[in-house]
Design a protein around this nucleic acid. Sequence first.
DNA 1: TAGGGGACTTGACGGTACCCAT
DNA 2: ATGGGTACCGTCAAGTCCCCTA
Length: 607
Amino acid sequence: MPTGSSSTRSPPCPGLVVSQMKQQGIDDLSNEKTDDGVKWKQLEHKGPYFAPLYEPLPDDVKFYYDGKPMKLNVATEEIATFYAKMLDHEYTTKEIFQNNFFYDWRKEMTSEERKKIKHLEKCDFKEMHKYFVDKNEARKALPKEEKQKLKEEADKIQEEYGYCILDGHREKIGNFKTEPPGLFRGRGDHPKMGMLKKRIMPEDVIINCSKDSQTPEPPSGHKWKEVRCDNTVTWLASWTENIQNSIKYIMLNPSSKLKGEKDWQKYEVARRLKGVVNKIRSQYRADWKSREMKKRQRSVALYFIDKLALRAGNEKEEGETADTVGCCSLRVEHIKLHPELDGQEHVVEFDFLGKDSIRYYNKVPVEKPVFKNLQLFMENKDPGDDLFDRLNTTVLNKHLQDLMDGLTAKVFRTYNASITLQEQLKALTDAEDNVAAKLLSYNRANRAVAILCNHQRATPKSFEKSMQNLQAKIDAKKEQLGEAQMELKRAKADLKAKKDVKSKAAVEKKKKLLEKIQEQLLKLNVQATDKEENKQIALGTSKLNYLDPRISVCSGAGAPMGKKTVSAQHPPAAPLISSSPAPLTALPPSPPADQLLLLPPSASRPP
DNA sequence: TAGGGGACTTGACGGTACCCAT
DNA sequence: ATGGGTACCGTCAAGTCCCCTA
């Protein structure tokens, strides 16, 4: 079973590097680190690879305004192609998108163009659109050799710009290309959708590298905005994007040692939480009855974060982004209280848009004091008012910091995700199971985590069809099964009549065949179950960001690990399985790997 | 202590490489 | 060999959280 450990990491492998370093008497990187930041000594790279310049359209591809062809200035034309390319996308039907685009487009026009082009409805991009569709088709239809050539060119660029040297190690860069210009596509109801995302020029880019290293050359005729040497940060280059005025970075690939160690640290913090979580839970339960409103709100919010793995919920600037919330920013309109619902008492119904405007909908029975507190928090408030008006993420995290060093709201998500995987694996897996059954168990455990974290996906486009295909296979197999049963019956009758060796052998043969078919049918059914259950659930995110890989490795589940390198997630000096830190439930001293999962499942989920 | 900047992680999505059944 | 299905990976938006300033 693949572990994904070889695919993305740049050679040489981390373990090797460390042993070489030790031999050479070079200190391990971790020795040079301080608590509050990276401290590298050497960073060398080639700077970002810039998005290709705009190629003007051929003369026969025309833009029409009010039915008449109109030659656009190159800059104007470029922006028009951004819109033209998106014509069959739902975005372009939205009024906000259209308005934002048109407003920004007109700003970039020449004054003559601006005088003429006054209404988007009169703009005809269809010919341009067709040009790009055709071009795309042509690219797909290219002969093999041509495609190979293109790939080689891309590989060359990757080779040249895709790696950097960090303290003597060649590391893969995550995103070495600048983002190309285009129209901003926000998620959900984004007020800025359709705005023009400008082209990044070398003059916008800050380069970060070590003083003694070779400073990357800007493209000819250009210069960098700034070259600096800041070894407390991990980015190689940065620029400010024009939509949200936020900074974008070029950073290392997750397979790099730097990222891997950070990831490892994250899970170590989660493991420390394991040790104090019971105390924290008793504490917040006690605080439900506090005389201070602030404490009550804090403790109820923390209960939600712990029990439901909600995100912290920072405040956002109104009108700048889609209206989404997390725990601390929940509003009265986002919950409904049901003293009784479907035979359960004290049910809270959540309905809000979370990160990426993904809907969170959940009906949860809560403990009575929580319910009573929520009623209190909602008294005399309007639907649009904050549920926790005395609370924000800063206040909450400050409190958490007091409870445990390094504890923040998001650690609960990591902790509860990982512990859920571990418990589910333990509960669902039987060592005797075959591979298919084990894989289903792993997926189910992974699914439990994804559901907890509300990681959703759009139903894949081909879902219905591929489900039908699978069903057809199952039907065919069932038919086969029926036939096999009949044949066995006949063979048995034959044996009864003849009682000879040959017919006995025939019966055995038919029996074997029947068993084989039964097993195949079972496997298909398992597959169908897995597929159906996974229809709208995304497993990747939790696998990548929330599940301590040591849980999967130690349990022997051998499931795909995603793009992070397992070995890179450890301080490489520690071997992965034999003596390395154990997963969450096994706090030091670490038992041997085969016992890691045998700890009591109790008390790991909130009461 | 509000407010904003900065650095970093988390997240869904779409294209592509790859795999397996036909 | 082909084509359908899927895992993987890049992309870039959207979060979290920390720090600094007024």
